[in-house]
Amino acid sequence: MEVRTIKVFTTVDNINLHTQVVDMSMTYGQQFGPTYLDGADVTKIKPHNSHEGKTFYVLPNDDTLRVEAFEYYHTTDPSFLGRYMSALNHTKKWKYPQVNGLTSIKWADNNCYLATALLTLQQIELKFNPPALQDAYYRARAGEAANFCALILAYCNKTVGELGDVRETMSYLFQHANLDSCKRVLNVVCKTCGQQQTTLKGVEAVMYMGTLSYEQFKKGVQIPCTCGKQATKYLVQQESPFVMMSAPPAQYELKHGTFTCASEYTGNYQCGHYKHITSKETLYCIDGALLTKSSEYKGPITDVFYKENSYTTTIK
């Protein structure tokens, strides 16, 4: 009895394709271990004539594949690729409408935090270190965002349907971005203890939790000093293409032309909904596939993004 075979390709990165001759009487799992086709788990399936010449994702289970996976995804987590594939199996079914010149995501599976993050990423200057993220990001900007969303979920250790947080998501993504040249110098002034300067680099240099107003941050924000008295913390120097200011959701007025974009969060910790506000020729609110415009805006804002380049204080 002759062994019926077909020729397929296996890959971990969709760049390096490895030619395989597979036995049609055995499952993919018996031949390769966990195997995925377009995100779908085909591990328990036997090869079919229609699979001839198709590319299958496999887990990096030998040295060659491990090197290829690390170079593309910059992670050695053995569960990463499987999590990416199972997320992709959902995100490829989502709709990605162009809204006001940006790629958004039609609401499904509690994905409003991903839509808000995706919209924000198209408006701030950011370059990702893992080629996987950078490639998928370019495709997302062009309207094909399924891979990018699935990668975000995998890097953030999230599953489809789980509630997510924009600030946490951005923080994970910033860790995989090139923020080497970003720098922030802060000064804390206390009447009792004097003053202390701190220099922050990388992710810490672009994120701040405690106030939404970048102007206020430049002037000074009140913080408790270690001595128990009130101290003032203010920005001395900022070198970065953008800054992200966050605070627990509270009524906040966004003035046209003073910011790049913002995240609105309605609801409580267990259950809520994100919308995205962007400042173009007027203010726009993007909620999944829905767009509304207004000249002014007041609502429960939790993150505001500002364009920056270089700032030095005039406070002496």
Rank of each mutant, 00 (worst) to 15 (best):
L179N: 00
P131I: 04
T103W: 09
S279Q: 05
L212F: 04
E52C: 11
N16V: 04
I15H: 15
K127N: 10
Q98A: 09
L151W: 03
L118H: 01
E71R: 10
G33P: 07
A154E: 02
D180S: 11
P34M: 14
L151F: 02
E264C: 06
V67S: 13
K106N: 10
R83N: 10
L254R: 00
E68R: 07
P300W: 11
F259G: 01
Y84I: 05
Y269N: 15
W94I: 02
H273M: 00
A289M: 12
T312C: 09
N89Y: 08
P47Q: 03
I45C: 13
T91K: 01
G220M: 01
Y172L: 14
V99R: 10
G39Q: 10
K255Y: 08
W94R: 05
M209I: 15
Y306W: 03
V12P: 07
M244T: 01
P131R: 07
T76R: 09
Q31G: 07
P130A: 10
I277W: 10
K275S: 09
E52K: 10
E71K: 11
R141M: 12
L151C: 01
A142Q: 15
H74L: 15
A289R: 05
C112D: 04
G228I: 01
N187R: 13
Q98E: 10
M209Q: 15
L88M: 08
Q20E: 11
S246R: 05
T11Y: 06
I286A: 00
A289H: 15
V21K: 14
T313N: 15
V42K: 07
Q197A: 07
A140C: 13
Q175R: 13
V160A: 08
T169P: 03
K183Q: 15
P34N: 15
P60R: 07
T314M: 14
C271H: 13
A40I: 13
Q230E: 10
T64M: 12
D38P: 07
T199C: 12
Y96A: 03
L179S: 04
V99K: 14
C112Q: 06
Y84T: 03
I286C: 00
A142M: 13
N100Y: 08
Y252R: 01
A140V: 13
N110H: 03
K233L: 14
I124L: 15
E162K: 04
K183S: 09
Y96V: 02
T76L: 14
K191P: 15
T312E: 13
F80W: 05
Q196C: 14
P224F: 11
P47V: 08
A142W: 14
Y311D: 08
T260I: 15
Q237A: 13
T64L: 11
